[in-house]
Design a protein around this nucleic acid. Structure first.
Length: 494
RNA sequence: CGGGGUGUAGCGCAGCCCGGUUAGCGCAUCUGCUUUGGGAGCAGAGGGUCGAAGGUUCGAAUCCUUUCACCCCGACCA
């Protein structure tokens, strides 16, 4: 049958990168747009993103944050106020130079009207620290105005050389938190708190284990004193930075002259953090769990948690099945489970089975003539593809439990994969050999940027982070033999 | 920015080297009948500025020139 090939995925083992791209497109998550490097997020993909947003937003609010919105455009002069910051982003900024088009005097199209040149160019935000800190200057007067805990959901633009759907696009969606504090300690606590929020979200909702840690100086955010990160391991053995939280010190307060009067009336610069996760999380989600049959979604983030497929020979039988299944649908919904009953008659059951597997729906129920006679339903779980036929007695409760089990199982699978692909090495020779196999490598490093760059140059591996948890035994750098305070996490990364 | 590739129906492609009826195939769509427990079958129908602009020619999807766009692999980055 020719159309079997229609949605056939490239196998992970054959070409992981191609598998990923196929999956994103065929599962209807996103597609490339007419604009270079920019994607269209399709309704199914966006529905997942909305679930990500909803949960994170809830967690931000529970930790005391409120949402606001700042402009898309940043005056060029703002960006240059913090030296390291502009250094870090200058090469990838989209710049608005004019505000009007006109009919092409020599042709049929439109051209930029040269008389509409802007006095000062506007930068399409690559991140909003500068415009936000320029605004905070007017909002902060006294210690009573602090802490200021604001988040925004927005799009940003970074003109990257090479893009990949969700993992790196020219425009992407994200949230960026920007907080202001009276003391260094408070700001550091905030940065850590938000990193923990990200880690909790990744592990509990995305079912994706992460390593929390601090970035090396070389990998730090432009303008930060410290960058904290959560690092995840994808199924091809590459690391993916999945969220970052920055302790910005007083850099931006000084650059934008944001001061407050403390309790004694003394003027001080405020302390800052910023933190963000992006639609890149979608890429992380896809690559953490999915298989050669398609997407595998954690129940917590699946737009459709249960799909029900009736198998019928005629209208009458469909009506009987619908009658039988309706109370179950209602029960599931009352348990807060999202259900889709697919009784469309233009696709056969087999087609639907394959389609919902491709889309990663965690649980599928099928009911046909046999089930009608026996009072049963077929239950298939997406993570293991195991099938069983069960009585419809208490089926709703069973499914609710099953969803929880799937959530835990895919976390465990990802966790076990990571454990199996995290190794410790002590010599640079061994490191060079093992890095070819992918995975996380824990090794000693002397703490210098020179050594880090040498490793990157020679092996394409980077220091993902200096982990917070785990073995803190000192040792000797695998490259230089100099003292090392603890092992660092290394990998090739996206 | 370097290397490679692709633009032909909604999607996926063939045709191009070697110019020549009305540009073809699969999927999808629409109609009808039969089907429905793992991507249905038969019959019929609709759907094209062949990426764009110039040129060569009696004649261009095909040859030449220019150009635009997108994708993939690197270097840079979340």
């Amino acid at each position: 049958m020719a159309n079997i090939e229609l949605k056939e995925l490239t196998k992970r083992g054959e070409d992981y990168s191609q598998w990923y791209q196929d999956l994103v497109v065929k599962a209807d998550l996103a597609e490339n747009s007419a604009v270079r490097g920019c994607m269209v997020i399709k309704p199914y993909g966006y529905a997942i993103w909305e679930k990500v947003q909803a949960q994170l937003d809830k967690m931000f609010k529970e930790t005391g944050h409120v949402n606001a919105y700042f402009p898309l455009f940043i005056p060029k002069s703002f960006l240059s106020k913090e030296a390291e910051h502009v250094e870090g982003f200058a090469k990838e900024c989209a710049v608005v130079t004019h505000h009007r088009l006109m009919k092409d005097p020599n042709g049929t199209g439109v051209v930029v009207d040269p008389s509409a040149k802007l006095e000062e160019e506007l930068i399409v935000r690559p991140t909003s620290e500068t415009i936000i800190w320029n605004t905070y200057r007017n909002w902060i007067r006294s210690y009573r105005d602090l802490p200021l805990l604001i988040n925004q959901w927005a799009n940003v633009v970074r003109w990257e050389m090479r893009t990949r759907l969700f993992l790196r696009t020219t425009e992407f969606l994200w949230q960026e938190g920007h907080t202001a504090h009276a003391t260094k300690e408070e700001a550091e606590e905030e940065a850590t708190r938000m990193l923990n929020v990200y880690a909790e979200f990744a592990e509990k909702y995305m079912a994706m284990p992460v390593v929390k840690g601090v970035k090396s100086a070389n990998e730090r955010f432009a303008g930060a004193l410290d960058t904290f990160t959560i690092e995840a391991l994808m199924q091809d053995g590459k690391a993916l930075q999945s969220g970052t939280s920055h302790f910005l010190g007083q850099n931006f307060a000084k650059a934008f002259d944001v001061m407050f009067a403390d309790k004694t009336g003394k003027m001080e610069h405020v302390w800052a953090t910023s933190w963000g996760v992006s639609t890149r999380l979608m890429g992380a989600l896809i690559m953490s769990h999915s298989d050669d049959n398609g997407l595998v979604l954690p129940p917590q983030l699946a737009p459709i948690q249960v799909v029900i497929v009736p198998i019928y020979k005629n209208e009458d039988q469909l009506a009987q099945i619908t009658t039988k299944i309706t109370p179950i649908i209602n029960e599931l919904k009352s348990l807060g489970i999202s259900v889709k009953y697919d009784d469309s008659d233009n696709k056969k059951p087999g087609w639907k089975f394959a389609e919902y597997e491709l889309k990663g729906v965690p649980v599928r129920l099928a009911m046909g003539g046999r089930d009608l006679e026996n009072g049963t339903v077929e239950v298939v779980r997406r993570d293991t593809l195991c099938k069983e036929t069960r009585s419809i007695e208490n089926i709703s409760q069973y499914i609710q439990d099953l969803l929880n089990e799937i959530q835990q199982n895919i976390y465990k699978k990802a966790f076990d994969y990571r454990t199996a692909h995290t190794i410790t090495v002590d010599t640079y020779e061994e490191f060079k050999e093992k890095i070819e196999e992918g995975g996380f490598i824990l090794a000693h490093w002397d703490g210098t940027t020179e050594t880090e760059l040498k490793i990157k140059e020679e092996t394409k591996a980077t220091i993902r982070c200096i982990p917070f948890d785990g073995d803190k035994t000192p040792g000797k750098c695998m490259v230089t033999g100099k003292p090392s305070a603890q092992r660092v996490l290394m990998a090739r990364a996206y």
